[in-house]
Write a protein that binds this DNA or RNA. Structure first.
Lengths: 254, 254
DNA sequence: CGGTCCATTGACATCTTTCAAGGCTTGTGG
DNA sequence: CCACAAGCCTTGAAAGATGTCAATGGACCG
């Protein structure tokens, strides 16, 4: 690690036209000059506490997994962080072996939480970004909780597929195709199922024509509407997805 | 509702010695002059969006329940809010019939989110309170997610009892006694169980001597250590509880 | 005193996990 | 280029846990 964490005196007011990254992710470019950029590859662990201080991570590309393990139990993935999402080390529960792992190759910005706070104090755009990122995280965790507590296994899988499709899919000849940087075990640990059960559901979805044949690390959703019909949370996820895009468009227009 | 929401011009800088409420809950008293105080009684619903604007709630006494229901499923309680906790309407997932309900009698401060934000901009104490309240909420939701996804039903119940004991119990002759402002169904909906199963677990705990005979809306924990031993999350909850107290003590000392 | 709501408990059904075997994919080394 | 090994995924059968339904009992309220 050559660049190290930025210190407070480097934080200063900057006004620039929105860069392309701002337009697509909603992350204020004012932050860029103050971060350490980290490239990730599949399975790479990121230290949550850097130099023992509260640290913030902003996902630029790829997906981050925040997982927690309590003694005697298998791990639970408590959150998926997509491009534009923000994560702070203080989000991780104490005493829970919380770790942050890259699901696939990608890029992450790292910045000391106090430096980010200082930026937010002088840049209203940054403040708004922080507020929204945090509120949307809590709302999404709430959806995750409903899913874990109330959905049966088929609904859980449908919900995840809809979420991933809305987040990262590109359309190609009727299919919504997206990278699947998770192993079966990862998905199972996110949904609170076991891998065998998950495999059964996937097979069922395949034979029902909802998804295409899996090509290892890539997923092709054939009938997103039918999938959404099986997920009680679909409407909420769509709403969030729409809100995010409008929000980004709005910010880019400013 | 006679007082109505505070408007922006009412927000101004105030510096006072910490009041007793600050010392016990960690909520900066600078906020007090700008809030609408609401008294609650059991089952009372609080409108999440007041006058269609993002609203913040700060619990002063009692417990608030944030619940969400997706179409075709029973409700899930996604969070319990104890005295000192902060809640914003943007924390509720969209399209999910999210409602905020008082679990028992108590007091809640209500303030427009933008007014609170303006306060935080000029009062570092308020800013720090907001940051910590939000981070601790996310961390607690993560613990909730692990519980919902990985714990068996006995561990879930043990976890809730430990959490409530740490939050609100008073010791009396060896027992940790606390008010139980939740019905069996409330608890079941928080833990992702059904009420019948929950009842069985409670009976099992009673005959094992972990808890005393229930006296309707009051719980007496007989052997907190044994209960904690059955909850993989006990250590985390204790940690959070200790951190909160130290934090409050620290702030009161300033 | 009777009614209503909530909690408890048993019997049973269902869903999910567990365990084990086998197949497929991927990467490595000859 | 092929053979082989390792890991992951799939699938069946059986076991276990949890949910469902229904009956009963108790507390609170009018």
């Amino acid at each position: 690690m050559t660049s190290g964490a930025k210190t407070d005196e480097q934080v200063q007011f900057k006004t620039e036209p929105p860069c392309s990254a701002c337009k697509t992710l909603g992350v204020p470019c004012a932050i860029e000059g103050h971060v350490t950029s980290v490239r990730t590859r599949r399975g790479q662990m990121l230290a949550l506490q850097h130099d023992r201080v509260d640290t913030a991570f902003i996902v630029r590309a790829g997906v981050l997994i925040l997982q927690a393990t309590f003694p005697g139990r298998t791990r639970q993935i408590v959150g998926l962080y997509f491009p534009g999402d923000l994560l702070r080390s203080s989000f991780a529960p104490p005493c829970a072996e919380a770790t942050l792992v890259a699901a696939g190759s990608g890029e992450v910005w790292r910045i000391r939480a106090d430096a980010l706070e200082a930026l937010a104090a002088v840049e209203p755009v940054v403040r708004r970004y922080l507020d929204e990122a945090v509120a949307s995280r809590i709302a999404r965790q709430a959806i995750h909780a409903v899913m874990l507590g109330q959905f049966d296994c088929e609904q859980k899988v449908a919900t995840l597929l809809v979420e991933l499709a809305l987040r990262t899919a590109t359309r190609s000849s009727g299919y919504a195709v997206f990278e699947m940087p998770f192993s079966r075990k990862d998905i199972a640990d996110y949904l609170g199922l076991n891998p065998d059960t998950l495999s059964r559901i996937m097979s069922r979805f395949k034979s029902a024509g909802l998804i295409g044949q899996s090509e290892r690390s890539r997923m092709a959703v054939r009938d997103l509407a039918a999938l959404a019909a099986r997920s009680p949370a679909a409407q909420s996820l769509i709403e969030i997805s729409v809100a995010r895009r409008q929000d980004v468009a709005l910010r880019a227009a400013v």
